[in-house]
C-alpha cells in the first residue's frame, strides 16, 4: 500500500489537498471517496482511508477545510471552518465530484466510485449521491438527512428531504439505535421516503450503539457495531464497485 498527499482542483477550480491510499499491486479496482467528519481531516479519517486501500480500493479523503486554513493542523482548521459557518453544500458536492474524477483518472480505475461519510459526512455522502455520477453511497449516522433542523442552529444546514428523489446510487445506512441525531424516528422517515421513491437501500441499526460507533479512539466506539458495519461496507462495495 502507498499513502500520500495529492492536490487537485476542487469546487470552482480551487486547489485542495487530499490524502490518498492505494493498494500496491496493479489490478483494476473501484475507488472510494472518504468524507471526513466535522472535527476535520484528522488521523482517524486517514486511517479509514488506508483501510479502504487494504480492502483493495483506491481511496481518497479530500481536506474539506483546506481553503479556510491551508497547512494548519486538522483541529485548528476545523475550528476555523466552524467559526466561518462550515462547508456549503454546493462546495461539498464540487469537492467530492473532483475527488471522484481524480479516482477515475487513475490507471487502476475500473470506472466505479463509491462515497462514504461519517457524522456530518454521512449527510454529505447522501448529498453527493443526489448530485453526482457515483456508484454507491454509505451514510454512517449522518444527522439531518431527514428531520427538522432546530431553528436556533446558527449554522444554516437543511435536511435533504427535497433532494432524496434525485438519489442516484444504492445507499447503505449504518445507524446506532441509541443515537438521537439521527434518531430512530428520523432513520425510519428516511427508510419510508426511499421506499416510496423506489430507491435501492440497505439499513442496519445497532442496538446498544450510539452516535460515532466507528470512532475507535472515542468513548462512543462500539466493537460489535463497528465490526459488523465494516463487514456490511465491504459486502456493499464489493457488490457495487466490483469490476
Amino acid at each position: 500500500m502507498t499513502a500520500t498527499l495529492v492536490r487537485f482542483a476542487g469546487h470552482a477550480g480551487d486547489e485542495i489537498e487530499a490524502y490518498v491510499a492505494r493498494p500496491e499491486a496493479e489490478f483494476r479496482r473501484g475507488g472510494v471517496v472518504v468524507i471526513h467528519h466535522m472535527p476535520g481531516w484528522d488521523r482517524g479519517s486517514k486511517e479509514i482511508t488506508r483501510r479502504f486501500a487494504e480492502l483493495g480500493y483506491d481511496a481518497v479523503c479530500p481536506n474539506l477545510y483546506h481553503r479556510e486554513a491551508p497547512g494548519a493542523a486538522p483541529d485548528d482548521a476545523a475550528a476555523v471552518a466552524r467559526a466561518q459557518g462550515g462547508v456549503p453544500d454546493e462546495r461539498l458536492v464540487g469537492d467530492v465530484g473532483a475527488a471522484a474524477a481524480y479516482l477515475r483518472s487513475l490507471p487502476t480505475s475500473n470506472g466505479k466510485v463509491g462515497v462514504i461519510g461519517y457524522c456530518s459526512g454521512g449527510r454529505q455522502s447522501v448529498l453527493a449521491a443526489c448530485h453526482l455520477d457515483l456508484d454507491a453511497a454509505v451514510d454512517c449516522y449522518g444527522a439531518f438527512v431527514t428531520g427538522e433542523v432546530p431553528t436556533e442552529f446558527p449554522l444554516k444546514i437543511t435536511n435533504l428531504v427535497d433532494q432524496l428523489p434525485n438519489l442516484r446510487t444504492p445507499l447503505l445506512g449504518l445507524f446506532g439505535a441509541e443515537d438521537r441525531y439521527p434518531s430512530p424516528d428520523q432513520v425510519a422517515e428516511l427508510e419510508q421516503i426511499l421506499t416510496a421513491e423506489g430507491k435501492t437501500f440497505e439499513f442496519h441499526s445497532y442496538e446498544g450503539a450510539g452516535h460515532a460507533f466507528f470512532a475507535n479512539e472515542r468513548p462512543s466506539y462500539n466493537v460489535a457495531a463497528a465490526n459488523d458495519g465494516w463487514e456490511r461496507i465491504e459486502a456493499f462495495y464489493g457488490r457495487y464497485l466490483g469490476a
Binding site: M38, D42, A78, A79, R82, G210, A212, S220
Partner: peptide, 30 residues
C-alpha cells in the same frame, strides 16, 4: 467560538468547546 459537540481530545462523547482566536491571525494561534 463556543459549541457543544465532539471533542478532539477530552474523553467524553460531547463537550462544551471554546476556541479563543485572533480572527486575523494564524489558525494555529488558538
Amino acid at each position: 467560538t463556543v459549541y457543544f459537540d465532539h471533542p478532539v481530545h477530552a474523553m467524553a462523547e460531547h463537550t462544551l468547546n471554546i476556541d479563543l482566536t485572533d480572527p486575523a491571525g494564524d489558525p494555529a494561534r488558538r
